[in-house]
Simulated scan of single mutants.
Amino acid sequence: MAYEIMFASFTFFSIMRYLITRFTIPDAVQHKWRWYNVWISWIHALCAGLGCIYCVSIEPTLLNNLQDYDIRFAYNLIEMSTGYFWYDAIDVGVLSGSSLKESLILLCHHFVVILCFTVVVVTGDHVPIAIVCLLVEINSIFLHARQIFRMAKIYDGPFYTVNKIFNIITFFMFRFVSLSWMLRRVILDRSELSIGYFILLVTSFPLMIVINFGLFLQVLAKDVPAFTVLQKLQGSKNQNRKEKDACETLNGHMNGTHQTKPVMKAEVVSKLE
């Protein structure tokens, strides 16, 4: 039954993409493929995010258990999401028209998720781990909504502002706190996991956190004015420092005091750092 649900999910999102292309898109949208892709991602995030909330609400103890979880709905939810990630990997890798270099980070993310979820689907074990991972989709509801707003050139207004606030809050809660907490649980309770799955998790979780950190900085830079001002001040400070160093080097050449030895020492220090 597992593979049937995965195939049905893949087919469902493919049909949804076709239906979305039948609608007229806003004139402000410059990239049609990205518009369609983000809408499909938002639909998946809504289904998976609400599904995770339901699973946690009816069985809160799943957060304290890495192994056993006998609610069929949770298992089916993981199957559905696996089908979606297969769909999106093909959409990004084949239909987007982007080069492999441009889509490499997203494809690596999808590969890791598909691998982790497939182990759960095939073995039927570790369902709680996958559900905690899917809690990320609660944030994706707001993250993808933000992308839709920005592609339509909507950068302010009450809806954008409210979505922006919820996006930042849920980003921190479900992309940093929940993943870090689960990584800690995996390390502490590693005896409950096979050695292969343990290695897969302790390598994939940090990778996800690093990717999310980079994405979080991008969100803050565009949506939080104070963070943007701080970045500009830091950039200006670094630029002034570079200009000062260049002036000192130039003066050293002009005065005949520029020496090779200190420069070589600085290069060695930079390599060590």
Rank of each mutant, 00 (worst) to 15 (best):
H110V: 04
H253K: 13
W181I: 06
I129Q: 02
I131R: 08
L19C: 05
L193V: 07
S236Q: 13
V224P: 00
I20Q: 13
A48W: 01
D27T: 14
Q259H: 09
V132N: 03
F73I: 09
Y18P: 00
S81T: 15
L77T: 09
Y75I: 02
M80Y: 09
P128N: 01
R17M: 06
P225M: 02
T11Y: 12
E59Q: 11
V224D: 02
L230F: 15
L230Q: 08
F85A: 03
L188A: 12
L272P: 00
I165S: 07
R34T: 06
L77R: 00
E273R: 10
N240C: 04
N240K: 10
L200N: 00
F7M: 07
S178D: 03
L183Q: 08
F166M: 14
A89Y: 14
Q259R: 15
R185D: 11
S96G: 06
F117W: 08
K32T: 15
L107N: 09
P262F: 07
R184F: 15
R22W: 10
L77E: 01
I129D: 07
S270R: 10
Y36C: 11
W86N: 00
N212C: 04
D70M: 00
C108M: 14
T24A: 08
L188I: 15
V268P: 03
M173Y: 10
I169T: 05
W42T: 13
F111W: 05
D27W: 01
M1F: 09
Y69G: 09
T123N: 12
F171V: 08
H110F: 11
L201W: 01
I20S: 10
N167C: 15
L50N: 01
C133P: 01
W33T: 00
R146Y: 02
I168H: 09
K164L: 08
N139V: 09
V113E: 00
I141N: 00
C133F: 15
E192Y: 04
I25P: 00
L220W: 14
K237D: 07
N76Q: 13
N255G: 03
F198R: 01
I90M: 10
M254E: 14
I114K: 03
A152Y: 02
S57K: 05
M1S: 12
G124F: 07
V132E: 13
F13P: 00
L104F: 10
Y84F: 15
T203H: 03
F111R: 04
K265Q: 10
F171N: 07
H126N: 07
V121N: 15
V127P: 04
Q234F: 13
E273D: 12
